[in-house]
Amino acid sequence: MTTSISSLRDEYGPLVAAMSDALAAGDQALFHAHLDALVHRREADLFKELRKLTTDLQAALERFRIDSRLVDLAEKEVPNAKHRLDHVLRLTDEAAHRTMDLVEECRPLADRAAKQAGEIMDGWRRFRAREIKVEEFQRLVLQMDQFLAATRGDMEKVRGNLAEVVLAQGYQDLSGQIIRGVMKLVDELEHTLVGLVRLSKTDGEMNRESDDARRGFGPAVPGVDHGAAVSGQQDVDSLLAGLGV
């Protein structure tokens, strides 16, 4: 009870004294009037308390709803999101390696075609200029036969690999869907936390600056990173030139 005896005296003293006077004077009507006033005042206090209690109860229920959702998010969905993001990492890793494998397979085939064509061109030029000997021409024809057969096979392989490179980009669709799901979760988590903060009415420092700058911030994400970032390699070069590097 916060009401001290002195404030009770101030609040009810005159009323009780008036009642006592009316009783002493034998004025029944006046006594009842004062008694009614006293009861009415008590009722008003009671309703005020009751209203406050109802509001508190509502807040408690809301908080319970948010708390249990938060527990659910923390226990199930956040670890689940971590697994999903791990999977994205795996998908992108596999796609990048698959693409590079295919490109690396194509490289020697392209090299071989270019090299053999170069060799044939030399003989062909002399043939066109009618400077070629019969034996050399026979060799050139053989060389051409081999080149055409090999290049046809090689280019079929290159074409197949290119088709597979395109196919390997399918990871973007899958990983995009997973990331979108995680973004939805982060959004819900944010809303739930904001609701909790609002109920707790704690206005503590929310935007604490991470002191772990030594590890790095990762790639700049448009619309997310704030602070002075360079816009490209040219910007880096001029900054470093200014520093004498």
């Binding site: 790639p219 700049a220 990173d225 360079v230 390699q233 880096v236 900054l239």
Partner: peptide, 26 residues
């Protein structure tokens, strides 16, 4: 060779004695 693109990071790297700084994607 890094995605770190904050000006103060590049300055920090320069002060630590880096010889070149390339940002990803490159």
């Amino acid at each position: 060779l890094t995605a770190e693109a904050k000006r103060e990071q590049i300055i920090e790297a320069a002060q630590a004695g880096v010889n070149g700084y390339v940002i990803k994607p490159f």
